[in-house]
Design a protein around this nucleic acid. Structure first.
Ligand SMILES: NC(=O)c1ccc[n+]([C@@H]2O[C@H](COP(=O)([O-])OP(=O)(O)OC[C@H]3O[C@@H](n4cnc5c(N)ncnc54)[C@H](O)[C@@H]3O)[C@@H](O)[C@H]2O)c1
Ligand SMILES: NC(=O)c1ccc[n+]([C@@H]2O[C@H](COP(=O)([O-])OP(=O)(O)OC[C@H]3O[C@@H](n4cnc5c(N)ncnc54)[C@H](O)[C@@H]3O)[C@@H](O)[C@H]2O)c1
Lengths: 250, 250
DNA sequence: AGGAGTTTGTGAACGGGAGAACAAACTGAG
DNA sequence: CTCAGTTTGTTCTCCCGTTCACAAACTCCT
């Protein structure tokens, strides 16, 4: 029962069971108090979304902030404050309607429709990404796999044919692609990013270990495996008593 | 005379050219005042390290905080403050000795020796990780690839044989592995984490889209592709003017 | 209906990090 | 030696995010 919506059903018709003075379903948005969502909150919304989906799949209809916070691995006060930026979607004394809240978060993030995505650099990592089913199930659709090496071309990966990198502009233009993924070697990453931006892409997820420079208005997020490991190593070193200044192991 | 190496460059022979009051003799460092490096700084040190390595490879011997900050994509004041937590490794009016600073950061992070790492779950992503050369070059050595599926066993990946998951305890014990990588499906991730912890692993890098619960003293970092994409989607939605509340025209 | 119990939403205190600004320290020329 | 120029290390202020704590709002039982 995924499409069951409480009270008022439609996605567009905001329910407003409560009579709060707060931001009701006004079309007027300019200075709406609840609309400036802090970046830290935005980063947690996907986590809540995932936890809610798990609850829905488990058949839970309602949950308290305490339960949901537990499932998401955060403090319950933080969860409530985060959700309060979206509006008042809970009921005091009761909790949150799981399916309703899930839809509200999905709408806020912009997952009510699928986002087309291109992946550039179909090597080790690119293959794994292309085969990753979590893309599709979480609101993203890989529409093209591009690589500069001709030896990669025409290869079928996850049902898609690897295409020459030069087709980037064409694909981005015709399919209105806004999000690009870079999985090329580091030396090529800046060039690829430049081409992406020129083609009209405005959001980039970068796996190459390089600092990208892009114009204003373009968002870049990086996923850097080595950095994560190095952060772990730093703390690990402290745990084991092997402090940095010790090292005269000779 | 720019490329003067402060006092010897060997990784094992710790330099100590500075006459810091630091606790050389003692491995025991319970309450050291100046050594509490903020988490945000720790997360940036690997970026600086990478930028410095690029400078060394490019033949640069000295650089200012401005230059280095540019290469790392941060504010120069922030860079200087970050470095100040490690000590005074720069020279006023001159800048930083690239190679010396690089070694100091590597030492602080704990990269003067390699860290053994095990990867569990050798599917799409696990293969890519195993083949990733950036591991080795940044201070990490993959010592074992483990998978529960017998069909995967004995397969050679990047020169390593995939071993049964049951060998985890043995490998961790004999090779003193402190860091584990989880690349299994989400449903298996918590079980794998529990086994890792029981085997003695105290740092986990988790690629499965799940919240892991671990005892105190165990660090977990997650890499979550879907979350990154969803954050991008949120901002993308705002750019295109497609605000979430559009539709409430009533 | 009323009161006890529960849970949300938010005001307020608190802590940490970012950035600006500046004194201290070094170099090099005269 | 002195002075001008350069760059670090640090202090100070502001802002964002976290957490506590509690009134408001709802349910349920008597
Ligand atoms: N493999 C991993 O697990 C892993 C982990 C973390 C980060 N990374 C990073 O991800 C990137 C890719 O890693 P990989 O292991 O897949 O490397 P890879 O060499 O296997 O694949 C890179 C692909 O990019 C293509 N390419 C090169 N230049 C290009 C260009 N200008 N335009 C388009 N395509 C181009 C190559 O033809 C190749 O197919 C690297 O930057 C790596 O550091 C990889
Ligand atoms: N493929 C990607 O690009 C990608 C991206 C982001 C996140 N992820 C996540 O990474 C994980 C792995 O993704 P994948 O595409 O490689 O999946 P996969 O199904 O290809 O590989 C999973 C592997 O884990 C093994 N496994 C299952 N249960 C196990 C257990 N209990 N102990 C040990 N091994 C076990 C399986 O035998 C299989 O080889 C998933 O959680 C996925 O959501 C993958």
């Amino acid at each position: 029962m995924t499409s069951r919506t409480p009270a008022g059903e439609t996605p567009t018709g905001v329910v407003r069971a409560d009579g709060l003075r707060s931001p009701v379903g006004h079309a007027d948005v300019p200075a709406r108090p609840g609309r400036e969502i802090p970046e830290a909150t935005v980063a947690r919304l996907p986590v809540y979304l995932r936890a809610l989906t798990a609850l829905v799949d488990g058949g839970t209809a309602t949950c308290s902030s305490e339960e949901l916070a537990g499932a998401a691995g955060v403090n319950s006060a933080k969860l409530r404050k985060d959700l309060s930026y979206l509006g008042s979607y809970g009921t005091r004394g009761v909790g949150y309607d799981v399916d309703y809240l899930r839809y509200q978060i999905a709408r806020e993030i912009g997952l009510t429709h699928d986002w087309p995505v291109v992946i550039v650099g179909i090597g080790n990592l690119g293959h794994a990404l292309a085969n990753y089913s979590g893309f599709r199930s979480r609101g993203f659709r890989v529409v093209a796999l591009l690589d500069a090496a001709t030896t990669r071309h025409e290869e079928l990966v996850a049902g898609l044919e690897v295409r020459p990198f030069d087709e980037l502009e064409d694909i981005v233009g015709t399919q209105s692609v806004a999000i690009g993924v870079i999985a090329t070697p580091a030396v090529a990453a800046q060039d690829v990013a430049d081409r992406m931006v020129a083609a009209g892409i405005t959001s980039i997820l970068n796996f190459a270990p390089t600092v990208l420079s892009v114009p204003d208005g373009v968002d870049v997020r990086k996923v850097d495996l080595s950095i994560e490991l190095q952060i772990l190593a730093y703390h690990e070193q402290r745990k084991t008593g092997q402090l940095p200044t010790e090292g005269a192991s000779a």
